[in-house]
Design a protein around this nucleic acid. Structure first.
Lengths: 208, 208
DNA sequence: ATATAATGTGACGAATCATTCATTTTTTGA
DNA sequence: TCAAAAAATGAATGATTCGTCACATTATAT
């Protein structure tokens, strides 16, 4: 694959146009949802003709999937980086997971909101229809998280309180829930700065 | 309000027709989603004419909201019953919550899947648009769950490991996640029979 | 300068869908 | 039995949508 510098101006422009269209579509989809946004509207707001959109994306669904894949990749890369880091303790990895997830979430809140609405919500166009690639990225994240819990167990840092896979799913769903709560009402339900505010649910025992 | 026995045959039939339409629509919405099901199709499958649907529901959205409200009420009633029960310890209430939620989920899986897809997924027609009533029922559940954690703290049965509201949101999201996992692949990710398989995440401490 | 290729355009066709309403069918009560 | 009321019908309407394609514009290379 060519590096960015090796692309001709023409090619760079085309790439930028593609990005512009994606960005515009994302904004509209987030505001009003896939079905309530027409290709005409996207074209108009992106300042292209309809036909041009169809030069870039073979259908509305294809355009949508492209947005989702981009987001999934961004999200996946960040999380993987945290969970596969070398020389970091398991406990610290979990803390970084909670922190990083929040960062990525906030940086790309519009896009990620749409992504999670689709992926975790088992939404209308149902998870089964989501491109295999995106589903794989999701599962990969959970798997990596599971491995952290397993490694902690092996090293004897963690107690065996629940199936590592359960723990992974739990941490995933809790953090996602909190992030959505913050999105809805930032002042009322802020995502905690200190990761342990969440992780203590795992780390400490509720029962006396 | 009249009791069921006091309704005339005519009225009872009408009520049943309404139910039939709702049931049919629910099935179709679950399979293919709100936007991908036409009123014609619902009418056909329910064996009514289109016009008749509009005698019962003033619009497609109204029909949809009616389904959702029914489900939300069923779900809410069951959970409230468990969490507000008298003479039950906090720990046992949490166990019953985990168990009962699963039962209701399984009994009405089609409907509840649709409900959660909309409510937790911050779906397309966005949560804000969901009738206020449904949102209230949701929040009520979380609030009741929070109260259980608070009561446990007061009684000194629980340690103060995290904000009770956090704990409530966490348990809510974890159980929901697990139930969806089971829906997707019952053999691969079964919802545990023993509530403590989940609750130990709260009850025990991960850190040695 | 001119031919060729790459990009962009937007009117238009074909299809779908929610909703309406004039009409028919059924029920009711006298 | 029959007229008035209630319920059910489904063809027609009108709005909206996706996607196509013949054409226009712009860039590039000779």
């Amino acid at each position: 694959m060519k590096s960015k510098q090796q692309l001709s101006r023409r090619e760079r422009e085309k790439l930028q146009h593609r990005k512009d269209i994606l960005q515009t579509a994302l904004g509209l989809f987030c505001e009003r949802g896939f079905h309530n946004v027409s290709m005409h509207e996207i074209a108009q707001k992106a300042e292209f003709a309809i036909g041009t959109l169809y030069k870039f994306f073979k259908s509305k669904e294809d355009l949508y999937r492209s947005i989702m894949l981009d987001i999934a990749l961004i999200f996946n890369r960040s999380i993987k980086e945290v969970l596969l880091a070398k020389e970091i303790s398991e406990v610290e990895k979990l803390r970084n997971y909670v922190r990083t997830k929040a960062q990525v979430f906030k940086n790309h809140s519009k896009a990620i909101k749409l992504f999670f609405a689709e992926v975790t919500g088992i939404s209308f166009t149902c998870r089964a229809k989501l491109s295999e690639e995106i589903k794989k990225l999701q599962d990969e994240n959970i798997e990596n998280l599971k491995n952290v819990f397993e490694m902690g167990l092996e090293k004897g840092v963690f107690e065996n309180i629940a199936d590592p896979y359960y723990l992974a799913v739990s941490l995933h769903s809790i953090t996602t829930s909190f992030l959505f709560l913050e999105l809805e009402a930032p002042e009322k339900h802020p995502y905690p700065d200190n990761p342990d505010a969440i992780l203590n649910i795992f780390f400490k025992n509720l029962l006396k």
